[in-house]
Design a protein around this nucleic acid. Sequence first.
DNA 1: ATGGTGGCCCGGCCA
Length: 255
Amino acid sequence: MRIATWNVNSLKARLQRIEEWVADMQPDVLCMQETKVSDDAFPSLTFMSMGYESAHFGQGQWNGVAILSKVGLTDVISNFAEGEPDTDARIITAMCGGVRVCSVYVPNGRSLEDDHYKYKLRWMAQLRRHVAAISSPDETVIVAGDFNICPTDIDVYDPAKFVNATHTSPPERDALAELMGWGFVDLFRVHHSEEKLYSWWDYRAGDFHQGRGLRIDLVLGTKAVADRCTWSIIDRNARKGQAPSDHAPVIIELD
DNA sequence: ATGGTGGCCCGGCCA
């Protein structure tokens, strides 16, 4: 079973590339973020014709998360299962082929002084509550998406540039550690411990070609998932060529 | 040190 996550940065702008990538990679489950469409405009028929059921939680212009599956898709939960609902469309959960899958788009944070940064930290705490409310650490659970947090300095092209910045601040990393402490493993790092492996590159200033990226797109899995995970990759080829997303997909394979 | 690119939808905001 192959599970992928991809911040597509607009479904409308990216649909052709997504179709090509899906046809090529054949994920059983694909989590998407930043679809930037309303539920009405979500192209479920396009994905159905490719063999996928889909669930989408969108709000139109901004945010929006989805799950595609060709191994079943049930028990859909849009937004947090518990507590104050988010006003943004940033999390959707479903059961796919025996795996409980959450597709998440964690708030960016903007800057350490911004209210959006406090919102990001609250959001991470709510995410932990969400997974604890709907599952337990001994189950088969995956949280995949754009976390907008680099777990460690080796996930940052130049850590000195990110002192007193979002994505690397200790409170953000603590919040991620809290979530992972519930019972998750960073599945990419199980297979790849080396530096300079990123999932996002700014569109500006040739950052992709200069290797200036961040690893902020994560697939977190419980032990039951990690035990079945045979490989994981970041498909940086998807960041090349005409009209790419600024994020590359992350893929994991389960036995 | 700054600004650069690209998405939204057409003037800035967001990333």
